[in-house]
């Protein structure tokens, strides 16, 4: 570093400000985890003692348990579906210049930009009309929900794969083609292995985005079959206690693990 002296007051104010902001982002998370271990029955400070019973209590509540399994199941199938649709689309957008490329990209990224609550209602409306027309029920079914969640995952899969394709030298693929391999062989033997980190990260991010989704699912879940975030919202609207914080803590852990795994494959700092 050059002329800024390490001890200048300006520098200190700046550093304090930076760490205050980082703290501001992390404090709610830390408080959630801390409170989950309080032995107080209702939310209050200071803690009377510490206990792990709220985790047992959270697991014993049917809504959370079945919500967890439903969210997990939907998030897995949705991210796999998003991957099947997203990999070819990412190839098209990352590797070709063609008329309408910007438009297709905008449409595929739009699930991030349209208000989720509006998208959820619109899909519900569509499902109802579809049911009137075809007699097949989509609303309040698991596959109807899964299709909507694939919509949540597609932009993430696309974004991570296009980024990972951009970091891949096209010359390698061209070499394979000029040596006589077909496009299909080139894809499976050259491109796919090279973008595998991007695929892993894309699936994980799609999974995380689907797992945490609240707004798109609100109207699409069926009676007695709700996802974990909806179960949490229903609970939080009536009471705030250590049990709900234990549920949130488990969610933080799952997502933190998923993120640390994806960081091994793609440096998170560069994917955004």
């Amino acid at each position: 570093m050059t002329s800024i002296s390490k001890a200048s007051p300006l520098r200190w104010t700046y550093l304090i400000f930076v760490w205050a902001i980082i703290l501001f982002v992390l404090v709610p998370l830390a408080t959630t985890i801390w409170v989950a271990f309080f032995s107080n029955k209702i939310l209050s400070f200071p803690p009377e003692g510490y206990t792990g019973t709220w985790f047992v209590q959270a697991w014993s509540l049917e809504a959370f348990r079945s919500g967890f399994f439903l969210s997990f199941q939907v998030a897995i199938s949705a991210s796999v579906l998003a991957l099947c649709l997203g990999v070819p689309a990412a190839l098209a957008i990352g590797r070709y210049k063609f008329r309408g490329r910007e438009f297709i990209n905008t449409v595929l990224m739009s699930p991030l930009m349209i208000p989720a609550i509006v998208a959820g209602s619109a899909i519900y409306l569509f499902y109802i009309e579809l049911q009137i027309w075809s007699d097949v029920q989509f609303a309040s079914t698991v596959y109807g929900l899964t299709l909507a969640h694939a919509l949540i995952a597609i932009p993430w899969v696309l974004r991570l794969l296009v980024a990972s394709l951009a970091g891949l030298d096209p010359a390698i693929e061209e070499a394979s083609l000029s040596l006589g391999a077909t496009r299909l062989t080139t894809f499976f033997r050259i491109t796919l292995p090279l973008i595998r980190p991007g695929i892993t990260a894309g699936v994980l991010f799609g999974f995380i985005a689907s797992f945490g989704d609240l707004e798109k699912s609100l109207l699409l879940v069926g009676p007695g079959r709700i996802t974990l975030p909806i179960a949490m919202l229903n609970y939080l609207e009536y009471r705030t206690d250590p049990t709900i914080m234990a549920v949130a803590t488990i969610q933080v852990l799952i997502i933190a693990i998923a993120l640390i795994i994806s960081d091994r494959y793609v440096r998170l700092g560069r994917t955004f």
């Binding site: 982002v25 992390l26 709610p28 998370l29 959630t32 991010f205 995380i208 985005a209 797992f211 945490g212 989704d213 609240l214 707004e215 975030p229 949490m232 919202l233 939080l236 549920v247 949130a248 969610q251 933080v252 997502i255 993120l259």
Partner: peptide, 8 residues
Amino acid sequence: PLFMGNVA
């Protein structure tokens, strides 16, 4: 925190 889900 970006991926925590709005509720949590």
